[in-house]
Design a protein around this nucleic acid. Sequence first.
RNA 1: GCGCGGGUAGCCAAGUGGUCAACGGCGCAGCGCUUAGGACGCUGUCCCAUAGGGGUCCGCAGGUUCGAAUCCUGUCCCGCGCACCA
Length: 960
Amino acid sequence: MDYDPQELETRWRRRWAEEGRYEADPAADAADAADEDPTFITVPYPYPSGGMHIGHARTYTVPDVYARYRRQRGDNVLFPIAWHVTGTPIIGAVERLKKGEEEQLSVLRDTYNVAEDTLQDLETPMGYARHFIEDHYKKGMKDLGLSIDWRREFTTNDERYSKFVTWQYETLRDRGRLEKGLHPVKYCTNEEQPVTTHDLLEGEEAEFQEYTLVRFGRGDTVVPMATLRPETVRGVTNAYIDPDADYVIADVDDEEWFVSAPAVEKLQLQGYEVVPKRTVSGEHLVGEYVTNPITGDDVLVLPAEFVDAENATGVVMSVPAHSPDDYVALQEAKADDERLAEYGIDPADVDAIDPVPILSIEGYGEIPAKTAVEAAGIESSTDPALEEATQELYNSEFHQGRLNDEYGEFAGEVVEDVRDRFRDAHRETGAFGTMQEFSEEVVCRCGGDVVVAEQDTWFLRYNDEDWKQAAHDAVAEMEAIPENTRGEYDHTIDWLNEWPCIRNYGLGTRLPWDEDFVIEPLSDSTIYMAYYTIAHRLREIPTEDLDREFFDALFYGADAVDDPDERALELRAEWRYWYPVTYRFSANDLISNHLTFYLFHHAELFDTEQWPEGIVIMGMGLLEGEKMSSSKGHVVLPGKAIDEYGADTVRFFLLNSAEPWQDYDWRAEQVASVRNQLERFWTRAQDVVDVPGPEERPELATEDRWLLSRLQRTVAKVTDAMEGSETRTASQAAFYDFEEDLRWYRRRTDRSRPAARWTLREVLETRLRLLAPFIPFLTNELHEELTGTPAEDAPWPEVDAALLDSEIEVAESQIERVVEDIQGIQQSLENAEEDVPEADPDRIRVTVAADWKQEVFATIAEIGADQGAVMSEVMQDPALRERGNAVNDLVGELIEFARGRADADLDALAAVDEAAAYERAADFLGREFDADIVVQTEGQDVEAQKQAVPFRPAIELEAE
RNA sequence: GCGCGGGUAGCCAAGUGGUCAACGGCGCAGCGCUUAGGACGCUGUCCCAUAGGGGUCCGCAGGUUCGAAUCCUGUCCCGCGCACCA
């Protein structure tokens, strides 16, 4: 029968669905259930804001392979899936669709093949989600043959799920892990509401920057200067303002402030009470003096066009000693008496301004900005090198600059270490304020300006020390695969601050005590693995019964509430049966948020024994060496790949091309080659199925025993690899590596022998079981043909120690070695310019080393690769002593050979009867080289022309 | 800047102290099989070599060791993540 993956895969899919093959439940008998150690595998639920591509296929196939492996090992395995729809991406996608945005339509039509008459179904968020769930993810997952328990699926917008999340957040609040506070958000001044990155036209990369407002004063009016370098306040020599821009004098809280007009709204949005009183041009302040709140010095305000009134307060302080920008600006101001005079400034006052250094740094002079400007040869503020010089000096000063003595308690410290403390100290005294601003311009899709607003929000207190400690404990107790990711969790835990966990709009669960807000996606997905264990049975319970007490009873037991709901206690048994999660498989970029949140929340809400047992990190996918991108159409859809190659090929490629945590690259050429290999495997397996061998195990030839021994090694290696989720190593060993052994076996032996047929059948059955997690369709089919049972229902193979035979393996590798040596000699002879008849020999003479040489090797195998010890042992033997130097040379050579080999291998080698091994292989060697093979022993039959050494027989090619 | 990963033959890629001129795949070449092609099998694919050999080699430069692709130091280059975005 030809390999027809479409046909056979369709059949198995139907069978699995009809049988409910992967629906997992605790054992009916409670006592049995208590004994079991079930396996619970999870993977982050997909976000159906678009279709599924081949990268997703791998994300879900890796856990599937592990799940299938554990099932064959006899575990009860639960592998569930659900759908994450929380937040704004789906809403945003629907809105772009409804607006008829070309790019969005193109992604839907061209990349994801959405039919025209289906598009209207996508115009509601859940309609949109449902389309991608059903037609893409679910279909793709079923086509791939994922062993998912489909009864448990849900979406994060379901009302019962919301009840669960409600319980979670009420519990967290009661435990003091939630806190109300202010938080900077992106806010569209046109739409008058917060916006997300997806809503932006420009400035997606913009970062929040926290400016310090240094409260300079002019009389009773505060003139707040915005700076990112508050520690330079003692170096301020003057200020700059845009003389032509609009500024306002306003009441801010209980004071009068002077700020740029655009700053008014920003300050209002950031929690300041601002009432503008009158608008003036910047010129109003030019030529005036303002007072430095730290030093008490009065400094002159100069006009400057480079000041951007759109940024922060529109008034900046000048620190010419440390800012190349300011230094150059000051030079230019000094040089332009005319302009100063226009503004009524006495040029002499400006001339008198000298840079005031406030920190020292190696490699620069007393005035670092001067050094930098002069070194770069900058003469004008328009010189592009100025920006570079500024950046470089800024960096150096930040990491190496030490504050001068006038900084008192802060003196001598490096800026990097002292800036925040210095700033905080002056905030407390009231000299400094604060204001948030973006690092670049941000524009909303509606065209409105986006600014930073401080908004009331609820935070998760990931900064609580005791919570961090609990999360660290969770990391310490779990298995991190690969192990080098462990540090990343700890690092993230240390670095994580309070996390705003609500948004103004989006799908998902409302904040229980304030319906205006919705819990954001990374915060409503931290313990939902627990929900899987009960999802299917929760449907029988009316939503209104799913209150706080219900879940308290479910998760904390009968004693946790006064009158526990019986149904909750039943579900509790299910939860306790499956929990904790054995492995969570996830992408490495989720360590810095989702996975660490997962640990935090488990550490807080559940007992130690319910904490995650392990996390396996998965690598990224490339497509033909490049990043996948659905907007560019640079994706492969699983459906298309499965149509083209079959699901087994897709699975095998995804699992075999790299370990789960390594990056992989989908290359059509390689995939096609995998398909080819599977087809060949199928064809050869059919041969074995079609020509059955003897029922009972016959007398086996050496080659058969060799192959079976290799098979045992393969079983050991594959099992070991699977235990560590090394799917590449495992599938490589079971498929390709063993294929090499088979190739040798086919070459080496007569496969029509009954013993060979029996052996090949044995080998096939074992390999089908080893490969079943990877290519379940094909292996099920063949294993059923072979034995009557699908491979997945057969137990995982175990190493049969009786079939392991190191001696045979070692002897066989000697045969390989002889073949290679003969080929090497032939090659060398063929290199000759003239024809050498021996290159095509009629007779090959293989001479085995004399017995005394074998004895010397036996001594080495016994004692080890120690020249001195071996020599003194060997010299005890008078016969050997007689040979003197020859023995010494031989020992040296053999010790070289033995060094680095395991003792067990040396013992196996010592046990080999070389002559007998070559004699057994003589027919084979004769066929290989089309020559007569003569095996003889040195000193016994004839003396060879060349010296033989144990495991390196003398080989002589002879032509008639 | 902080954290992680990586640089191996034309390409992909295995290899963490000796069994390494370095697994395997792709590509290329020769031979066999075949009407032909494909598939399959065998052989070769850094340089030199008329007997299984020698030389050079694993980003670069040093070092440790009897011995290094593998360990250490320095250096260059590349990829990924760094938050309120799922």
